[in-house]
Simulated scan of single mutants.
Amino acid sequence: MIVFYRGLHCPACRGQLNQMEQRFDDLQALGVDPVAISADSRERAERARTEWGLTKVPVGYDLPVSVMRDWGLFVSGSANDQEPERFNEPGLFLVKPDQELYYASILNMPFGRPPLDELIGGMAFVLDRAYPARGGV
């Protein structure tokens, strides 16, 4: 599970990553290795880990705009002095071990993210029934 979060400035991201932290063991029990990535600098990413109490969720940083675009993420510019010059809007992807994309959620706003409990329930269903990825026709 790759979660692209907006950065330290985003309270909605804090909530999402806190949920990932709380459900980290449940995700791993399903065979899911969650990671969170943003365009934040290393310093800002480390502040997010510390201030948000993230001890289990790996946090990546320095996501280049070119990679944001490769993933189809929306890219925003700062609207105030709390936001970085350029940052990605939220995205969540489930990628199978063979690197096949299984699930994608791409947003242009900080709200409307898929609820983690619903995703976990869906992943359990998928694993139990060998449910195929959809939308690839």
Rank of each mutant, 00 (worst) to 15 (best):
I2V: 14
Y5V: 11
R6A: 09
R6M: 10
G7R: 07
H9V: 10
C10P: 01
C10K: 01
A12V: 11
C13V: 02
G15I: 11
G15E: 12
Q16D: 09
Q16A: 09
L17Q: 01
N18C: 09
M20D: 00
E21C: 02
E21Y: 02
Q22I: 07
D25N: 03
D26N: 04
D26Y: 00
D26T: 05
D26P: 00
L27H: 01
L30Y: 01
L30Q: 06
G31M: 02
G31H: 03
V32N: 03
V35H: 04
A36M: 00
A36S: 00
A36Q: 00
I37G: 01
S38G: 01
D40M: 13
S41A: 08
S41L: 11
R42K: 15
R42L: 14
A45F: 04
A45D: 04
R47N: 11
R49Y: 04
W52R: 03
T55I: 09
T55G: 12
K56R: 11
K56W: 04
V57T: 06
V59H: 00
Y61D: 13
Y61T: 09
Y61L: 07
L63N: 08
L63S: 07
L63C: 08
L63W: 14
P64H: 12
P64E: 15
V65N: 13
S66P: 01
S66F: 07
M68A: 15
R69M: 12
R69H: 13
W71S: 07
G72W: 15
V75Q: 09
G77W: 04
G77H: 15
S78W: 04
A79L: 09
N80E: 09
D81F: 13
D81M: 08
Q82E: 13
E89I: 00
G91N: 08
L92N: 13
L94Y: 14
L94E: 06
L94R: 10
K96D: 13
L101W: 10
G112A: 12
R113P: 04
R113D: 05
P114V: 07
P115K: 15
P115S: 14
P115C: 06
I120M: 02
I120V: 09
G121E: 05
G122E: 04
M123H: 05
A124H: 03
A124N: 04
L127I: 02
D128F: 14
D128G: 14
A130Q: 12
P132S: 03
P132T: 02
R134M: 11
R134E: 11
G135H: 08
V137S: 07
V137M: 05
V137I: 04
